[in-house]
Design a protein around this nucleic acid. Structure first.
Length: 545
RNA sequence: GCGCCUGUAGCGCAAUGGAUAGCGCACUGGCCUCCGGAGCCAGGUGUACAGGUUCGACUCCUGUCAGGCGCACCA
């Protein structure tokens, strides 16, 4: 089973269409999906429905013909014995029923160390750079950043697992307006601490941490620039610690200051100019992003000769490609959505495919405490921080809560609920399954590798559990293709459910040695998959609870 | 005014254009002589509204209504 059965079957369907000579009129992609219900087999294709119009025949007629044509191809070595039945059902779906023997072999693969199923290479080593959080180092991380951190980290984990060569990056806005304001905020607080009476502007940073920094350097008589630098370094150390406690790590911290000092911004702009994508108007320099379907052209150099934020960003992303990355994934807050088309325009101006840059908008999380919304304002320092969430509900529950909704949707995060150690809290349902399996494995003798005969596993709940395990890779592939890890949380709940159902009806440790062995292997496999899944989510796996 | 996200059961949410729209909570009843009852089983109502595209729409498009967020030559 070197190849994924899904890919093999798609290839077989293609061949059968060629045999029927309808591949000429149908060159769209062939999908093989998980059916809505177990009654419709294990894999399903809708080609007969999609061919109805072109061929002017009933879907069932087409389906029957395809089924006949595909049968010889199922006898080829890699597929032989995998398919138990093919049927045309419903409005004309072609449904594949996989043989139990195939599932038993699949189960074996999960348990055997180092096999394909738990080390897939779907990504083929393609180099991916996931950029996320990238919060200005002007204060502690907020919950918005926390959600980005959880999503970005998990997405990167999944891509790595699937065989992409994945790196994680934090883009550091370590200079510019906000940093200046930060420095001035600290400078003002120093004067205040030294007994001066001051007016503190409303748009300055008002958080407590500004006092802390001021306190530390109030006697040092630093230049404004050094105050900013000190403040940035101090805040960055806090951010790094917060992320570390949240289980989030980065391979690179890419400095905007470093980028500017390297001269790469001018270089990138010059290149754009040579390509004819820049022009002057009203004293400013504009990027002709409308050529690439942006709503309007964008300023890159302001009339006072300073850069807009877009200029370093253009250079930065071109630099990502030059560093060898083939797929760029950026996680942004919803306030940046208007920015997508101009950055996509920029990468296209440098001759990169529009699809090689994926922008994932991570919607905000509203924090609730006992059903009441908690108001947030960054400037006033009145916002819930990642630190507070971590202190209050812990890493496991907070990561899970940030991941359990579609990333593009708003998320209501009730701190009270996340804290509860009750069945209302879905994370415990999964961890409980894990702990339960661990407990059984502690009592049962260790499964003997290669010796157990897995064909003893024929009960409905056993087969369903194996099928659920088999769907693991399929789910991860979807996560990768939609760049959203939330489906993994849904899947793990379903897997835990399938396990609990099995457990309730069938005894693992019983009289029959062969059956006991088989079932020990089964739950061992469930443990491996839950374990892998929780690792990807960055959530701990309790042997006991 | 413009843009983005959302509208599914009493509540919180799922369904990568597919088949009889699922899960948790809450409510009612049942299941521990037995591997962890933080579990399992049974009980039921729903796609905001109006059009359109499609063989097929919770999903895509247009409009209306409702909620959240954002709209700089800021970052």
């Amino acid at each position: 089973m070197k190849e994924d059965i899904q890919d093999l079957l798609v290839a077989a369907i293609k061949k059968s269409l060629e045999d029927l000579k309808i591949d000429k009129v149908f060159n769209e992609e062939i999908y093989l999906d998980l059916p809505a219900d177990a009654r419709f087999g294990d894999l399903s294709t809708n080609i007969a429905l999609r061919l109805k119009k072109t061929l002017n025949k009933s879907p069932h007629e087409i389906a029957d013909a395809v089924i006949e044509a595909i049968k010889p191809h199922l006898e080829e070595p890699q597929l032989k014995g995998c398919i138990k039945d093919i049927k045309a059902q419903g409005q004309g779906f072609i449904n594949f029923y996989l043989d139990e023997k195939y599932f038993h072999r699949y189960l074996e693969e999960i348990i055997m160390p180092g096999t394909e199923s738990m080390r897939p290479n779907i990504g083929l080593g393609k180099r991916v750079l996931v950029e996320y959080v990238s919060a200005n180092p002007t204060g502690p991380l907020s919950v918005a950043h926390a959600r980005q951190a959880a999503v970005g980290d998990t997405l990167a984990n999944i891509l790595s697992f699937l065989g992409f060569d994945t790196k994680r990056e934090y883009y550091l806005n370590d200079e510019g307006n906000q940093i200046n304001i930060l420095g001035e905020s600290v400078a003002l607080r120093i004067r205040e601490l030294n007994g001066e009476k001051i007016e503190f502007p409303e748009n300055y940073y008002q958080g407590e941490y500004i006092y802390t920094i001021a306190q530390q350097i109030k006697d040092k008589k630093l230049e404004p620039e050094d105050i900013s630098k000190y403040a940035v370094d101090y805040i960055l150390s806090i951010i790094k610690k917060e992320l570390d406690d949240f289980g989030v790590k980065f391979d690179y911290w890419y400095s905007q200051k470093g980028l500017r000092e390297s001269g790469k911004i001018e270089e990138a702009l010059n290149l754009l100019k040579e390509k004819g994508f820049l022009y002057e108007k009203e004293g400013a320099l504009w990027f002709k992003s409308t050529i690439f379907k942006d709503d309007k052209d964008r300023v890159v150099v302001k009339s006072d000769k300073s850069f807009t934020y877009l200029a370093p960003d253009i250079a930065y992303h071109e630099e990502k490609y030059r560093r060898g990355f083939k797929w760029l994934i950026n996680l942004w807050g919803p306030d940046h959505h208007g920015y997508i088309s101009r950055l996509k325009a920029a990468v296209q101006a440098f001759n990169h495919e529009s699809d090689s840059l994926s922008i994932v908008i991570v919607q905000l999380a509203s924090i609730f405490r006992e059903g009441k919304s908690v108001e947030m304002s960054t400037r006033k320092g009145q916002y819930i921080t990642l630190r507070e969430v971590l202190d209050e509900v812990g890493k496991d529950a907070s990561r899970f809560f940030f991941l359990m909704r579609r990333t593009s949707s708003h998320l209501d995060f009730d701190l009270g609920l996340a804290k509860k150690q009750t069945p209302e809290n879905p994370i415990f349902y999964i961890q409980y399954a894990y702990a339960r399996i661990s407990s059984i494995l502690r009592q049962g003798s260790k499964p003997v590798r290669k010796q157990s005969d897995l064909s003893v596993l024929n009960e409905k709940e056993e087969i369903e559990l194996i099928k659920k395990l088999w769907q693991f890779l399929y789910i991860l592939k979807i996560c990768s293709s939609i760049q959203d890890p939330y489906m993994l949380t849904v899947y793990l709940q379903q897997l835990a459910e399938a396990f609990h159902k099995f457990y309730d009806l069938h005894r693992v440790l019983g009289e029959d040695d062969a059956l006991t062995h088989g079932r020990l292997e089964l739950i061992e496999a469930v443990k491996i998959v839950i374990s892998t899944g929780l690792d990807l989510l960055g959530i701990s796996k309790p042997e006991k609870m």
